[in-house]
């Protein structure tokens, strides 16, 4: 969780925070990406971000929810 606290920019912190609790449904994820980054969920930018986060093991789709894994 200390990673979450240190992360910049704030929009990335917000995304990973929203992945806590019960996680984000795909529609919630799409809305957040649109609101914070002005990206469509299936845009190359969004896919690159999600892939980078997944590669670090921080954020991935578990079943039908995207969830944060920071410790």
């Amino acid at each position: 969780m200390a990673t979450l606290l240190a992360l910049e920019p704030a929009s990335l912190r917000k995304l990973l925070k929203r992945g806590l609790r019960q996680g984000l449904e795909r529609q919630d994820l799409a809305s957040l990406l649109e609101l914070e980054w002005h990206w469509k969920v299936d845009s190359s930018e969004a896919l690159d971000l999600l892939a980078a986060l997944e590669q670090r093991g921080w954020f991935r789709c578990d079943g039908d929810h995207w969830k944060t894994h920071l410790g």
Partner: peptide, 10 residues
């Protein structure tokens, strides 16, 4: 600590 950060975040 880690627990309090989680508790705060959620």
């Amino acid at each position: 600590n880690e627990e309090t950060l989680l508790s705060t975040a959620i």
